[in-house]
Design a protein around this nucleic acid. Sequence first.
DNA 1: CGGTCTCTTGACGGAGTTCAAAGCTAGTGG
DNA 2: CCACTAGCTTTGAACTCCGTCAAGAGACCG
Lengths: 196, 196
Amino acid sequence: MPEVLHQQLRQMIRLSEAEIESFIRLFTIRHLKKGENLLIPGEICRHLFFIRSGCIRYYYTSDNGEEHTGQFFFENGWYTDFESYLTGKPGTQTIEAIEASVIMQLAKTDIDRLYDENPLFERFGRLMIEQGFLAVKRRNASFLNESPEERYLELMRTRPKVVERVALHHIASYLGIKPESLSRIRKRLQMQDSGS
Amino acid sequence: MPEVLHQQLRQMIRLSEAEIESFIRLFTIRHLKKGENLLIPGEICRHLFFIRSGCIRYYYTSDNGEEHTGQFFFENGWYTDFESYLTGKPGTQTIEAIEASVIMQLAKTDIDRLYDENPLFERFGRLMIEQGFLAVKRRNASFLNESPEERYLELMRTRPKVVERVALHHIASYLGIKPESLSRIRKRLQMQDSGS
DNA sequence: CGGTCTCTTGACGGAGTTCAAAGCTAGTGG
DNA sequence: CCACTAGCTTTGAACTCCGTCAAGAGACCG
């Protein structure tokens, strides 16, 4: 059993070991190859995902076929398309494994049942969405306050994993620019570095 | 007593009229003149706000003194700086009344007490943050997927109130551009309109 | 070893920014 | 009630950065 998930749950909810065990047993495992999708537009997102290993991203596809990635998640991270998950409507995003990944998924139906059975799980649900909210808000502020170059520097500073493990054209799409532009930003920064 | 607030609460939580009355009594009223602030950077946000009349915006101030407005809220809308409210840490945003406004505020201490007293209020808290989450997510997607001009058109289409009531330089700062650029976008659109 | 995908580079065009200045508008005080 | 002023909006010219199109170099996989 995945020890990290165990620990995270212990920190989030005050349950006995036995209760946590039975909670974890509700998760099912999925193995994804690099490039496989966890969710595609039009599908309703009925699960909460815990990334045991690997890396996923979610992205929107615009009319002209461009991909705009919203976020990357690595091992021990949580994700779900809350827009679809909460509303029950078909989603508009794609969730893609960009590395071979092992995903533990928990069905919304099980979560909702847990809410009813034990109010302590309400806290779990609230923490999930609070955490998601704060992350989305930070991302918002970065679009609002920073230029593409600043966003890239910030990304390197605060989330080196992304720059190390994710393809540059995916990073570009995360920053809201084209791969060519990211390439030029990187060159610009190199020259500044060596020049100073 | 504000009838709209009454109605909204009735829709959100299944409480008796008496319970709702006593809930509403927890709110206190604040009158703000145009330009007055509800919250400034460095302060901890300890309240949830319901806008009874008027209009507020929240914005971040960057190092060079530029304001970047995150969102506008009108009468019958809810807002709080969740980042500060949830974490209990000093916030980084300013909440400003951009019209003379009447605000009903509810203290976090009261809300937390209600959570304990009656689990039905958990639902209120969850709806608040879910609603905020979805809004921020939409805004995020608009930055990711749309150009400034498209964002402006979208704003006119979906939230005409903003374009009608808010100063153009505030709208520009909401769109992530300079007032001069918004002025040119508007001119461009006018010419296209009359030309077609 | 060939092909595909990724990243880089160059030239050009376009949209937003900057700096500066000139109308407008609305709120204030006389 | 009008005049004045401060803030808002528009306009112009020069500049910057990103997007586009095109091509080439490098890396990885079968």
